[in-house]
Structure formats: C-alpha cells, structure tokens
Amino acid sequence: MNSNRSIRFKPYIMILPALLLVALFSYIPFVLTFLNSVHSVSLGGERLAFVGFSNYRRLFSNPSFHASLSNTLRFTLFFVPTNIIVTLSAALLSNRKGWLANLNRIFFFLPMAVGMSSMLMILKMMFNPTIGIINRLIGINIQWFNDPDAAMALLVVAGVFLGIGFDFLLFSAALRNVPNDLKEVALINGANGFQIFRHLELPLIAPTLVFIVVTNIKNAMLISAPVLILTEGGPFRSTQTLVYQMYLEGFKSGNYALGSAIAIVVFLLTFTALLILLHLERRRIYYQ
C-alpha cells in the first residue's frame, strides 16, 4: 500500500521543481506586475492603495512614455526590414559551392559566437566620433551618440550584428533545402537568378521567413541591452525604448507602479506578435 501510494505521487514529485519555478518566476510575478500596475507602490515594494487605472492614465499622458512607445515602434520598423534584407542577402549570396563560399558562410555566422555585451562594447568603441575607427576610416564626422537620427541608426546596426548569426543560419538552412534539380530545370528553361528567387526559392523558404520576421518583431519590441550599453536612451530620449524606460522607472526612480504599467503594455505588444506566430504555426509553418 505504502509503495503503491509513493508510485502514485512519484510523477508529481518529479515535476515539482519545474512547477515551483514556473509559479515563482512566471505566474506569480505576472500577477504581481498586474497588481502593482493598479496600485500605488512604496519604495520598499509594498502595495499601498488600489488606484484603478490611474497609473495607466498617468502613463499615457506622460511625454516620456510617448517617446518610448514611438521609439520602440520606430526601431521595430527600421530594424526588421534592414535585418531581413541583410541576412537574406547573405544567405542567398553564399548559397553556392567552393571554399570561398564556405569561408563567407563562416564569417556570416561568426557574430553569433560573440557575447552580446562584447559586441556592443566593440561597436561603442568603433563608433566613437573622435577616435572610433568608423568615422576616421570613412572620413566622416557623424556624432553617433549626439544626433538623434544617427543614434537610432546605430541601434539598428547593433541589432543586425547581434541577430545576423542565427538568422543567417536559419535562412541558409532553408535555402539549402530547395531541391537543386528544380533550379536546374528553371535555368534550362531560361529563368534568370531573380526569377528563380521570386518564383521558386521565396515560396519554399516562406515559413522560415515568416518565423524570422515574427521573432525579429518580438525581439525588437523588447530591445533594452543595446540602449543601456550604447546610448542610454539619448540624445534627448530619442532612443529611449519601452523596456529601457521600465528599467529606469523601476530601478532608478523606484517608481514600481509606473514601471509595472509599462511592463503590462510590453506584454500586450509582444503577446500580439506571438499570437500571430501561433496562428501562422497552425497553418503548418515550422519553427523551434
């Protein structure tokens, strides 16, 4: 009887660590974040009084939040197409035979081997307006950290360097699965390179393309480390993003309630992106 009971409880005991962890670090904090966003919260983190949606009203009338929201969306809008064009070009151009193509492929995915903060520190030093190699090599004088447009462009560049390794590998894998005999038939029938891409390769890699677009959108909406390390939201809040403002409110100003309200907005935004992903996945699109 005793051993019977222990057998019955065994599966629950074996998944207990996982269940405790999802409760402690996913579900409870999610509920707490929502509760904090509808209360006033002390510096020590205690909820003081229920305030309804007034934190959200304060947020939506806050110019700093307007800046964060529009910067996050602007970054997403610039970053996603840039990243797709660069990584897809890399995959298309290097999808050939020979040692040179092999070397090109290694170079394209090598940024993946560099840690995020290493890559960002390298870029920060390379783009320094006075002694950085970029301005000096090209002979330009762009104030990468003091000009709002240049700072946004720098974030997009950083985003591409941080993401190219993995996205390149995904595109490459998808392209190599396009059957060679189909391409040969198309060539014999007089199709040019662009036609082969447009009518043969593109439809076949569409699932991968959709997956990369959606994950890029999600990552772009959550961008924080490049802002923290490269621009610190500046100049004049021109690169302040949602997660960065959440960090400022929560950890620099001790304004947990407002920070939590921003977190809920971030949730809703990324959740929408993920719902699209799941919807597409149901239509037989492969992803991790």
Partner: peptide, 10 residues
Amino acid sequence: LLPSDALIIA
C-alpha cells in the same frame, strides 16, 4: 508566452 524581460521588476 511571458517574456522574462517584462517580468524583471516583479
């Protein structure tokens, strides 16, 4: 579905 970056305060 819950991005951990948005849970950091809690």
